[in-house]
Write a protein that binds this DNA or RNA. Structure first.
Length: 857
RNA sequence: GCCCGCUUGGCGGAAUCGGUAGACGCAGCGGACUUAAAAUCCGCUUUUCGCAAGAGAGUGCCGGUUCGAGUCCGGCAGCGGGCACCA
């Protein structure tokens, strides 16, 4: 078939996508004769349109999948939809669309956008989490969690909009007000379901050490999130009334430096004291107004309220300290009360200076003049929080910090004033949501029998279709019939739970469902799950570094305990990609402009096309609709094809870093694809063997072998940007080879063939097209990854850099086998070297084999 | 405030084991082809001095270790990310 003048990207990409589909290349089954490899990108929320972040995410995953496939792995690469969630309900409220209809339309639209990317996905495994076939298994899991005590019910706070009478998500609360009503949000207590993730706190923490193929950053974030700290709970008896205050501390060694106790504004004792105390009530309200955001609290002044109460020191009943309510003490952590030791904690120091409380040094650095140190510290504004030796601390005196901690704990325990303990920052996972578009929680509330699980044979509890969103609140709550049912225990009239699960529930096990997504009987087909899990390479945004990934790790453990699976960790390798950024454009009065609204003048200035007004070009930031700096993937696929978009996503920026979208960048990718296509058209027939000698043709062949070796390693380590650079380098070399004789013609062909094969994971359509032109017997997609000849990687000669006084003065080319004496002679023979030495005595010559010669004078 | 990361030409980045800094690309400049343009191909492109040969400087800043530092160590600054004041 005659070649066209230009690469017909649309027809070609379409042709090969159809070919892969028809050959069912990417549909896989368990095959124990081959090693498996499970590649997974975080599944998308079906918002309706794909964005460049998706393109990057799925391109990265697809390169890994195709590469591993070529290497002979049985590759599972599935796709699904994280289909429950708030946006569907918002669409229902705003546009009257049913959340289900809206979601499935979006799924269809997005699938249609993904298809032209040419992803090597097994679409036969597609799942949507909003399908009853999917969530029925989730309901069963919940019932098992109930049985094993991993799910329980307790009261907890929610954001309540008093105008809409509805619960608000955090993102629906803006500056303390409901996003729709603008009403001041209230805190309300509701009875909600929790999963006992804290039961695994220690295991989740310990196992982080084993996650060797996870980014260090994510491991650190999870470690900090779990937040294990060792310390003690200490009881302080109230003076003049019954009761006591329990505090948690990590520094029991500084108990003798205590000068006050501080209670959280939400501590039960605070509430008790506030009753009938207008000033304290106002103080608490003041603290609440601060909000919980980091910035607000950080910039806020540390404030306290003297309750007038005092407590007895646990080590000395005659010593009393005052009790404050303080705005910086959290009720959610520890006991909601702390003791302040100003000398050794900066925040306590600030507090003590503000309220005129004593500062007593009880730790001094080793080897310093203690008396002078104490005098300075006690007059200072700066706390000493480093390690040291206990002083002014009775029985602790002279002990190191570690010794003093355990001695203090032993004493507390013998006095029965508390005990040593380990405190985690991690809290149990609240899974109840007062929403329609989520998985119904399968329990029934009976006036006589209490909370009763839905019997397994009655699963799934399906969402009713006939719901309306014309009124605020949860449609399940006000549905005329849905919630009315009978109690499975006593048969009397009872009510269904109208809360649904947090959508992190669905995403905590979807990766395992992909192993056998169509099995109607069980969530996980054990044979399939045992074969495919864990996920070998998981790829997604770093925004999920803590919650989604930690919940999935927890679920894996909980499901193992309930007999569903037998893997320790869900994701063996994790890769977190960077964001896609783009320049921003603004008018003089600050209005954001879409890239399509502007143009460049001949003088190089940007103007708005509509009125020729000047445009300010802002720095590149994450693409977002509000800044109008988005680029539509459809438009790019249409103009340049999938391969160019994919190549651009992989070029230049390392995948973990942010990527700047530039028009010239995608143009460059497009040019390269056409160049490869043209170069392949220049192949000339030759019967000669592929040369490996020292001729230019032979050198090219050697370079091709080196490129295969290097790119294999690059792809193995997900260094796609350098992989692309190597492909371009080889292309430059092939393009520079004159096909003057048969050996050269064979070398040229070998170069093209190599380029085609190593490009396949990144530019699969072009590669497949050129492979078929080259006469490939099978689809390139089914062709093994190229191998290289290690012998051809070795050169006879080596170029050494020659330095004098540590600076480069020239290079020498010597035989690989050259002796040190020969190398020295060659180096000293360089004119520039002699000029630099200039008659000075040569003290030493350092020779690093294969690298460098350094002449020291 | 705490924790983590980053800082290399006009720009994105490479150098990942302490050994030739700037691979590869983008932008720019010059040339070839063309009636012309586009496309394509070739060349130059860290910077200063110099006609050149060459010499000097140079990986955020200051200092250190080393024959040799973008890379290791100490200090500082800037930018970005995480955070629930974590006691």
């Amino acid at each position: 078939m005659a070649r066209e003048d230009r690469y017909n990207v649309k027809a070609t990409e379409q042709k090969w996508q159809t070919a892969w589909d028809q050959a069912r290349c990417f549909e896989v089954t368990e095959d124990t004769s081959r090693p498996k490899y499970y590649v997974l990108e975080m599944f998308p929320y079906p918002s309706g349109r794909i964005h460049m972040g998706h393109v990057r995410n799925y391109t990265l995953g697809d390169v890994v999948a195709r590469f591993k496939r070529a290497q002979g792995f049985n590759v599972l690469h599935p796709m699904g939809w994280d289909a429950f969630g708030l946006p569907a309900e918002n669409a229902a409220i705003e546009r009257g669309a049913h959340p289900g209809t809206w979601t499935y339309q979006n799924i269809d639209a997005m699938r249609a956008q993904f298809k032209p990317m040419g992803l090597s996905i097994d679409w036969s495994r597609e799942i949507a989490t909003c399908a009853p076939d999917y969530y029925r298994h989730e309901q069963k899991m919940f019932l098992d969690f109930l049985k094993t005590g991993l799910a329980y019910r307790k009261e907890s706070w929610v954001n309540w909009d008093p105008v809409d009478n509805t619960v608000l998500a955090n993102e629906q609360v803006i500056d303390g007000r409901g996003w729709r009503t603008g009403a001041l949000v209230e805190r309300r207590k509701l009875s909600q379901w929790f999963l006992k993730i804290t039961a695994y706190a220690d295991d989740l923490l310990e196992a982080i050490k084993g996650l060797e193929r996870w980014p260090e950053k994510v491991r650190t974030m999870q470690t900090n999130w779990i937040g294990r700290s060792e310390g003690a709970r200490v009881t302080w008896d109230l003076v003049g009334r019954d009761g006591s205050i329990e505090v948690f501390t990590t520094r029991p060694d500084t108990l003798f430096g205590a000068s006050f106790l501080a209670l959280s504004p939400h501590h039960p004792l605070t509430a008790e004291l506030a009753a009938g105390n207008a000033a304290l009530t106002e103080f608490i309200a003041d603290c609440d107004r601060l909000g919980t955001s980091e910035e607000a609290i950080e910039t806020a002044e540390k404030k306290g309220f003297d309750t007038g109460l005092t407590v007895r020191h646990p080590f000395n009943p005659d010593w009393t300290v005052p009790v404050y309510v303080a705005n910086f003490v959290l009720m959610d952590y520890g006991t909601g009360a702390v003791f302040g030791c100003p000398a050794h904690d900066q925040r306590d120091m600030d507090f003590a200076r503000k309220y005129g409380l004593p500062v007593k040094a009880v730790v001094a650095p080793k080897g310093e003049d203690t008396a002078a140190f104490v005098a300075t510290l006690e007059a200072s504004e700066t706390a000493y929080s480093d390690d040291g030796i206990a002083i002014n601390s009775d029985f602790l005196n002279g002990l190191s910090q570690t010794e003093a901690k355990s001695a203090a704990i032993r004493k507390i325990e013998s006095l029965e004033k508390g005990h040593g303990t380990i405190q985690y920052r991690l809290r149990d996972w609240g899974v109840s949501r007062q929403r329609y578009w989520g998985c119904p929680i399968p329990v029934i509330h009976c006036d006589d029998c209490g909370v009763v699980p839905v019997p397994e044979q009655d699963l799934p509890v399906q969402l009713p279709e006939d719901v309306t969103f014309d009124k605020p609140g949860n449609p399940l709550e006000r549905h005329p019939t849905w919630k009315h049912t009978t109690c499975p225990c006593c048969g009397k009239a009872a009510r269904r739970e109208t809360d649904t699960f947090d959508t992190f529930f669905e995403s905590s096990w979807y990766f395992a469902r992909f192993c056998a997504p169509k099995n109607p009987d069980v969530a996980f087909d054990r044979t399939a799950v045992d074969y495919w899990l864990p996920v070998d390479q998981y790829i997604g945004g770093v925004e999920h570094a803590v919650l989604h990934l930690l919940y999935s790790r927890f679920f894996t453990r909980a499901l193992k305990e309930c007999g569903y699976l037998d893997v320790k960790e869900p994701f063996d390798g994790l890769f977190t990609q960077g964001m896609i950024c783009h320049e921003t454009y603004q008018t003089a009065d600050g209005k954001w402009l879409d890239p399509s609204e502007i143009e460049k003048t001949d003088s190089g200035l940007w103007i708005r096309t509509a009125d020729q007004s000047p445009v300010t070009v802002g720095r590149s930031i994450k693409m977002s609709k509000s800044k109008k700096n988005v680029v539509d993937p459809d438009r790019i696929f249409d103009a340049y094809g999938a391969d160019a978009a994919r190549l651009f996503m992989l070029s230049d920026s390392p995948p973990e870093r942010d990527l700047d979208w530039t028009d010239s960048g995608i143009e460059g990718a497009w040019r390269f694809i056409n160049r490869l296509w043209r170069m392949a058209g220049e192949i000339q027939a030759s019967a000669a063997a592929v040369p490996t000698d020292s001729s230019p043709a032979g050198k090219l062949v050697r370079m091709a072998h080196k490129t295969i070796a290097a790119i294999t390693e690059d792809l193995e380590k997900l260094r796609f940007n350098t992989a692309v650079a190597r492909i371009r380098e080889l292309a430059n070399a092939v393009g520079g080879l004159e096909q003057t004789d048969d050996a050269a013609r064979s070398a040229y062909r070998f170069g093209i063939e190599t380029l085609v094969r190593i490009s396949a994971p990144m530019m699969p359509h072009l590669a497949e097209e050129l492979w078929s032109e080259l006469g490939g017997a099978t689809l390139l997609t089914d062709t093994p990854w190229p191998t290289y000849d290690p012998a051809l990687l070795v050169e006879d000669t080596v170029t050494l850099a020659v330095q004098v006084k540590g600076k480069l003065r020239g290079t020498i080319e010597v035989a690989k086998t050259a002796s040190d004496a020969e190398i020295e002679a060659a180096a000293l023979g360089l004119e520039t070297v002699q000029a630099q030495i200039g008659g000075q005595p040569v003290r030493k010559i350092i020779i690093v084999p294969g690298k460098i010669v350094n002449v020291v004078v």
